[in-house]
């Protein structure tokens, strides 16, 4: 069902793109559009909530009750160095599929080689709750006693490989130190064309597939705001750096 929903959304975007696409032989000034989709998965598996269906690199079964994160300053870079910022701050909430499909944006023609974004909220916006939209504190992504946004929030349960009972899992990742800039290579020719860029985010890589192993056992409650959390933030930051990939889909 969920897969069908995704396909439906994708088709909607595709058909919208075709509808707005222009022909090169007309006098109408042609335009280029791009939209970005954040596709969250666990080693290629779709995310279903509240089911202990996933196994991390440490061999522990785990689940999701919440998966939300902020991306900021999503920017396309052309081969001549020109940059086009598409989105300032966006909250990606796996429970709200629409939030994973970001708005279609008109872009200048050119050859785009990189998509850049931050995982997290930039330090200028990170320390005030007096904000609207995706940064509205109502989204539950802010520490109110030490004003700052939770950049990545994963809550759920896990079963340790050594004991059979499910325990809660709380990973709240943030702080200015945790802000991560990512730059993913793409190859996208924007000329009278419409594009969709899919950013794949493998949650398992965040916990150590190919990276620093972060087992949940004895390590299941992280709030990012005590000094004890610093080593964890740094490990997670390294892992996040390897957790994202980009693919471009082009429609004339």
């Amino acid at each position: 069902m969920k897969r069908n929903m995704k396909n439906l959304l994708f088709l909607t975007i595709l058909s919208t793109a075709v509808f707005f696409g222009c022909r090169k032989d007309t006098e109408i000034k042609c335009k280029n559009y791009v939209s970005v989709h954040f596709n969250n998965h666990v080693s290629g598996n779709d995310i279903l909530f509240d089911t202990l269906a996933y196994t991390n690199a440490a061999g522990e079964l785990f689940s999701f009750s919440i998966l939300k994160y902020y991306v900021s300053h999503v920017t396309l870079v052309q081969d001549n160095g020109n940059k086009v910022e598409l989105y300032a701050h966006e909250l990606i909430d796996e429970a709200n599929e629409l939030s994973t499909f970001l708005d279609r944006i008109e872009i200048p023609e050119g050859h785009y080689t990189t998509i850049e974004f931050n995982l997290g909220v930039d330090s200028i916006h990170n320390h005030s709750g007096d904000q609207v939209g995706d940064l509205d504190p109502i989204n539950g992504m802010i520490w109110t006693w030490n004003t700052g946004y939770i950049f990545y929030k994963h809550e759920g349960n896990f079963i340790s490989s050594t004991s059979g009972s499910a325990q809660p899992l709380v990973y709240h990742y943030g702080t200015d130190n945790g802000l991560l800039s990512l730059a993913l290579p793409i190859s996208m020719h924007a000329f009278n064309s419409n594009h969709s860029i899919r950013i794949d985010f493998d949650i398992n890589k965040a916990y150590g597939v190919n990276g620093v192993l972060i087992p949940f056992t004895n390590n299941n409650n992280h709030q990012s705001v005590s000094v004890d959390d610093l080593p964890w933030i740094n490990k997670m930051k390294d892992n996040f750096g390897q957790s994202f990939g980009a693919s471009v889909f082009t429609f004339e």
Binding site: H127, S128, G129, D130, P137, G140, I142, T144, W145, T147
Partner: peptide, 23 residues
């Protein structure tokens, strides 16, 4: 911990040991 009077307002309202309200 709060950098402005506006942001401060969120603390007591949402703190589970104070007013414990969901925004």
């Amino acid at each position: 911990g709060a950098n402005g009077l506006e942001s401060q307002v969120l603390g007591p309202i949402t703190n589970p040991i104070e007013m414990h309200e969901d925004l």
